[in-house]
Simulated scan of single mutants.
Amino acid sequence: MPTDQVRLEDLERQIYDLGHTTVFASRRDPRFSYCLYVPPDLGRGHAPDLVIAMHGTGRAFMTYRDGFAEFGRWNNCIILCPPFPVGIRGDGDRDGFKYMQEAEIRYDDILLSIVDEVGERYGLDITRFALFGFSGGGHFTHRFLILHPERLWAASIGAPGSVTLLDPTRDWWVGIRDIKERFGITVDVAAMQRVPVQMIVGAADLETWEITHRKGSPHWMPGANDAGRTRPQQLDSLRRSFEDAGIRVRFDLVPNVPHDGNQVVSQVQDFFADVMKNRRSMRMNPGAMKAL
């Protein structure tokens, strides 16, 4: 290959594939896409970890990508932010991704296919990743954790408006009774116990107009409002449900913070950094991992 062509390809990679990347369409389903932050020195030193930041109802996916970029640079992490558009089926539905399934679309499978694509693009074997989501993203994150704990090395669940409790007496999405029939997955509580979990919400996040389910609304079902009236109450119910199942939870109620994901990003990054430090030290010392 001519030298000038090699240089052109290197330049294009620097501009579009490293740092703050362009937006890529998913090869599996081009209705979906993703952007990344990729450390410019990718490939020098140990393989990077993957951190996924899931948007809320407002779909501010690039805001979270940019908010995690410096974290990614200094902690050798790829940051992945996939937007799940409103009304993907032409019906204007804003909330389908929050409940993991929308007609024929399985959002957990879409995300996993994008993770595989990112691994292929950068020559990485990404078995596990960290997942953060706030508001609608918090919906997605804790439900993804319930379905796929084996794929996560950490989960940060931010201010979901409705929660799925580990309740075997109620159907999805309020509980988990029919998960096997609905998703073909058996809940693996032992695997969930191995995932470090943060739950985070602002103490001033008390508006209820958007999170109260009313009979006749698309996702209303019996018990829809039972976990609590406000987001802190909902998240505390989820904490108690997880802890009753033996899942350890770091619960952060952030003073004076309303419903604003940008105001909790630093605490989420601290949590991920602590988990990464432990993971990397165990990778360097396999004997310590066996002793745990």
Rank of each mutant, 00 (worst) to 15 (best):
C35T: 12
D116V: 07
W172S: 01
L18A: 00
R240M: 05
Q267H: 09
M282L: 14
M1G: 14
L152Q: 00
Y37V: 01
D205M: 08
E102D: 15
V254M: 10
H55I: 09
T22D: 08
P30H: 10
M54W: 11
R106G: 07
F242K: 03
W172R: 02
A47H: 06
V187W: 12
P222V: 08
V38C: 01
E12I: 13
V249A: 03
L11R: 14
G119I: 08
Q267A: 11
A204Q: 09
G202R: 00
R240A: 12
D49T: 13
R151N: 04
D41R: 13
A288Q: 14
T57K: 10
P258W: 05
G158Q: 09
W209R: 14
D10Q: 11
Y122C: 04
F251N: 05
E207C: 06
L18M: 07
A103E: 15
I79R: 03
G92E: 09
A224C: 11
W220N: 02
D167A: 10
R94D: 05
D49Y: 13
M100N: 00
D252F: 05
E70N: 14
S217N: 12
C35G: 15
L166D: 01
L42Y: 00
V23G: 00
Q233K: 11
G287T: 09
A204D: 15
I179M: 13
T3R: 10
V195C: 05
D226I: 03
H148W: 05
T127W: 05
M284S: 13
S113Y: 04
R65E: 10
L238V: 12
F251H: 15
N225D: 15
F84P: 04
G137A: 03
N256G: 03
E117A: 02
P2E: 12
L166C: 05
W74D: 13
I15Y: 11
P168I: 01
V174H: 09
L36T: 00
R89S: 09
G87M: 10
D116P: 02
P286L: 08
H46I: 06
P85N: 07
D10K: 05
S33T: 02
Q263M: 15
I79N: 00
I247H: 04
H213P: 02
L111G: 00
F132Q: 10
R194S: 14
P149S: 02
G287W: 12
Q269N: 08
R248D: 13
R280N: 14
D4R: 07
